[in-house]
Amino acid sequence: MPERKGGAAPAGMRRRMSGSGQEASGLGTCFLGQTPRDRRNSAAILIWTAIWAVTFTATLWTIKAGLAEGVLTWGLAALTAVTSIMLLRSYVRFVREADEMIQKLYVDALAFGFAAGAIFFAASEVLAALGGPVYDNNELFTAMCLAYAGKVVWNMWRLR
């Protein structure tokens, strides 16, 4: 096999090379263009996002409705914090272990989102001083997330 020349293949490559014909065709493990590792890490983010959203909403609703008091309130808050940390951990893992170009795209989008947030913050302060609308932290966070998500989509489309 020509690919065996010039030294041993990396561990991941050796595993795939020794697989079935379907795997070698790229249809078995390269669904939607992602590597199996990226697909697994993406799924972990989705799962933790869903868990976090449910926990966050339930905690907020329970506390605001006055259904929980004392230790239970702190327990719910701790549960939300734990799910937030797990979500953050899954995202960091995805970016760190991602295919090198995908990693570059995401880091680029993170930088863009951060810069957009900083600009939005500065501009909104100036606008507020001029008598314009006053934006709160939620809107700042939303602007950052939208800029980040938009940049991810744009980068993916550009290099599709």
Binding site: E3, P10, G12, M13, R16, M17, E23, A24, S25, G26, L27, T29, C30, G33, Q34, T35, D38, D99, E100, M101, I102, M156, L159, R160
Partner: peptide, 20 residues
Amino acid sequence: GWSQAALAERLDVSRQTVNA
């Protein structure tokens, strides 16, 4: 005679990376 996906799999990268 490899597809981009097949090459991507052999290199352990995404198909988009091979295409790019």
